[in-house]
């Protein structure tokens, strides 16, 4: 399995992401945003976290128009798998590859902490190694993670099993973390080949860092 990790000016999670996928046995390659092609043998494109273009205008709004994103949009439309983490999730919603949008957190704070997440749907290429209803402990670190989707589209993504994760307590009950609609932490597209989440699974691979739950999430792509 070969993973392309994108890099924009202001991206800061690309090396963690690369380390995480390498540790799990994937081959990785960093791709600069000015490139307009992906290597032909790529199985998964990861848009990592950070602050692309300083979050100017809206988080992800400028990165979405970089040359590599045109290729990634085409890759996704052809069925290629794409994962956006944190700023990557924002970029994918701005690009129209994922439904909804990410707004400023309701409490206006940058929230950085370990957070429990409940697995809502696992019948997809990402969370297939996790149990439905399972509670995972994964770090979050964001200011614009407040997921918004209008009522009509919400009904659609819920019915299609596109809601991947919700913020929850230790028992799996949804909790309000940043104001997201029904505590949504991650979603996928209708075809279930494009995935986005605000939490950072690449930061949860080592016991010494407080959680290893990210391993099962990222391993899903090689199953």
């Amino acid at each position: 399995m070969k993973v392309a990790v994108l890099r924009f000016p202001g991206t800061n999670c690309e090396f963690d992401t690369q380390y995480a996928f390498e540790k799990l046995g994937y081959t990785t390659e960093l791709i600069w945003h000015e490139e307009d092609t992906l290597p032909s043998d790529i199985d998964l494109v990861v848009v990592p976290g950070g602050f692309s273009y300083g979050d100017y205008l809206r988080s992800g709004s400028i990165a979405r128009f970089s040359p590599i994103m045109k290729t990634v949009i085409q890759f996704a439309h052809n069925g290629g798998k794409v994962l956006g983490i944190c700023n990557g999730f924002q970029i994918l919603t701005e690009a129209g590859l994922l439904p909804g949008a990410l707004k400023r957190n309701n409490n206006l704070h940058f929230i950085s902490k370990h957070q429990n997440l409940c697995v809502i749907n696992n019948d997809n290429a990402f969370l297939n190694q996790c149990e439905k209803g399972e509670v995972l402990n994964i770090p979050i670190a964001h200011a614009d993670g407040n997921y918004y989707i209008d009522e009509e589209d919400f009904k659609q993504i819920e019915a299609n099993g596109q809601i991947l994760l919700r913020y929850c307590d230790t028992q799996g009950n949804p909790v309000v973390v940043n104001g997201s609609v029904t505590s949504i932490a991650g979603v996928c597209n209708e075809a279930k080949n494009v995935f986005g989440l605000m939490p950072h699974p690449e930061r949860a691979l080592e016991v010494i860092l407080g959680s290893v739950d990210g391993i099962r999430m990222l391993k899903g792509f090689s199953a």
Partner: peptide, 8 residues
């Protein structure tokens, strides 16, 4: 295209 995100 760019300046507004018409979803929100």
């Amino acid at each position: 295209t760019l300046l507004a995100n018409t979803v929100i």
